[in-house]
Every structure is written in C-alpha cells, then in structure tokens.
Nucleic acid binder design. Sequence first.
DNA 1: ACCTGAACACCGTTCAAGT
DNA 2: ACCTGAACACCGTTCAAGT
Lengths: 187, 187
Amino acid sequence: MSGNAREDILAAAKLVAQAHGYAGLNFRDLAAQVGIKAASIYYYFPSKAELAKAVARRYWEDDAACLESLLQNSAKPIDALRRYPETFRWALENDNRICLCSFMSAQFDDIPDEVKTEVQAFADVNVAWLKKTLIAAKIVTPKEAEKRARAIYSGIVGAQLVARSRADISLYDSLIESYRAAGLFPG
Amino acid sequence: MSGNAREDILAAAKLVAQAHGYAGLNFRDLAAQVGIKAASIYYYFPSKAELAKAVARRYWEDDAACLESLLQNSAKPIDALRRYPETFRWALENDNRICLCSFMSAQFDDIPDEVKTEVQAFADVNVAWLKKTLIAAKIVTPKEAEKRARAIYSGIVGAQLVARSRADISLYDSLIESYRAAGLFPG
DNA sequence: ACCTGAACACCGTTCAAGT
DNA sequence: ACCTGAACACCGTTCAAGT
C-alpha cells in the first residue's frame, strides 16, 4: 500500500496480531495483503519471531509517543489521566481488537523470548507514564504511585478483554466508569 | 488416567486451553496425553468445537460449584469476598496458567459461536456471584452491585493476565492489594 | 535487491476396518 | 463399545534458486 513493503508488512501484522495474536500471524495471508508471496516476507524478517518482535517494538514505541503527546496536549496532568482509557478504546473501536500485548500476554507460553521482552516493554511504558502523571497530578504520593499505576494498567487490560468477549464497547466504557466510581481511576 | 477416557480428555483439554488457548488444543497431543490416538477422540466428541464447548461448560460449572462452596464455608459474606481472588490465583500457581475464559476471550474472533456462549457464561457466573455476595455483605447498594461486580471481575481478569506476562505470582497479589487499597475490592 | 516454487512438517477430520 | 491406521485437504514455515 505505502510502496514500502517492510512498512506494509509491519502495519498488516499489527492488525492481525491485535485480532488473532501471535499464533494467528501467518505469512500467507499477510503476504497476500501486501501483494507479495509468503516466502518474500523472509527477505525483510528472518523469522516469525523477528517479525513479531519488530511489530511489538513498533507498537510500544508508537504508544509511548502517543502518551507523551497526550500529556503535552493536556492543560493539566489530571486531564491526560482522564483521557488515558481512550488509548485502549481505539483497538475495540477498530473491529473489536485488543492490545497486541494483552493478546501476547495470554500466549506467553507460545511466544519467543525476544517477543516477551517487547511485550513487557509495552506494560513498562504504560506504568511509567501513569506513575509520573499520577505524581504530577498529585493524585497519590510518590511512594504509592507505582502500585497505583500498575493497578490502573491491569484494570484497563481486564476491561478491554472483558469488553471484547461481548463485542460490546459500551461495556468497556461502563467498566471504566465503575473504576472511577470505586476510586481506582482518577477523574 | 482415571480409566474414563472422556473425563481424561476433558481434564487434559482444560489444562491445554488454560496454557495455549483454543488454537493450542490439538487432537494429536491431547490423545497422546490420554493414551489413545487422535482419531479416538472423535468417538467422544464429534468435533473440536464440541470438545471446546464441553470443556468450557465444565469449567464454569466447576467454578460455580467452587464459588458456592466458598460462600457456604465462610462465616460472613465479606469473608468470601476477601477470598475470591484465590479462585483466580490457582491457575497462576499451576504453571502460570490463566483462566480458560480469559484466554478464549482474547481469541474471540477464532472460536466457534457455541464456545463463545460458554465463555460468556463463565463471566456471568462470576458477576452474579459477586453481585449477590456484595449485596449480602452490604458493601454496595443493590442498585450499584451489578456495576461493582463487573468491575471486580474485570480487575481480576486483568491482574491475572498481567501477572502471567511476567510469570510473577507476587505481582498478582500486589495488584489485588492495590485494588483493595484503591477501594475497588472490599476487605 | 527482491522475489518465489516447491518441499516439509503439521493439523483437523474422515472412514473403513479392527477388537 | 471402543479404538486405530491411513488418507485427505489444508496450512505455516523454510530455503535453495531465480531475476
């Protein structure tokens, strides 16, 4: 599509991984989407493991940039925190997909070690951003920030997965609202 | 193992599904575990979809019985609620597995409709139990109970998935504790 | 540099045949 | 009743070979 086969492969693989996970990443279908043959993908990526690693790395890099942008474009840190759930909502809006890293977390026993590292990096990026933003917003003390950040992250992950199991994005919104009402989420 | 091949198949399939999901359920390996050949499984289950359906149904049935037992054996409803996270902890203790229904929720696009129904039933069982127990413990008003029950369920699901991604059961415990501190979980 | 044919190993499923 | 070998059509993965 873009005229850059490598980028096209990465983009297509991201969408497939969000819908079918690591096991669902197949070179025949992927190649067909890009307009080449399955074997040609090996010119760009030496193995499925390397492709998945590249996809997962690009995924958290893009997410990190997106979160920084969200923070910069918010008047106050608390505003960025309020909008944080939107970053996980987009996948559901996009044909009921979920976070690539949530899917691969489920498939933990079946993904190569080099992919695990990138999957964990995504969680690290989110927790680090939440932590610093919670502190900046003075929602919690610096001492409590790490734990609260992890709790918010895992709450979001669960809400997204549960919403997918019903193909119901309003359930996601409702769960986020309940997290707020219960005091887990700020806002 | 039990001398009952059908039960042995169900038991083995449950463990495989908790570690590798629906896609990971393959008749050759499954049969080898039970000591029969792949083709023999078809004597008990007419298709992979029917096997997965039976496994998922048995899973929520067992869970329902377990939750009722937990409630009956608790002095007060609040005690049952405090111990609720244990029911999801067992899977992690068992070689870092997760809830079969969480895994299949991720694989939503790839499971047959009859399996989806059973996967959703598991969530329904949990939410219904949490709702009635929250009300009995007077943690929330009957009006708020449903939403809080769903939030607790999705919080647990997320915590289990995040802990799996690190193969770290202490992270699960820490997340549950954070949920309590934030006010999401009672106790 | 970029691509592919063809082979390989594997999987779900079927069925005729075995005890 | 319970089980199996063998086969089928298919799929993901790989690599030697093409241009």
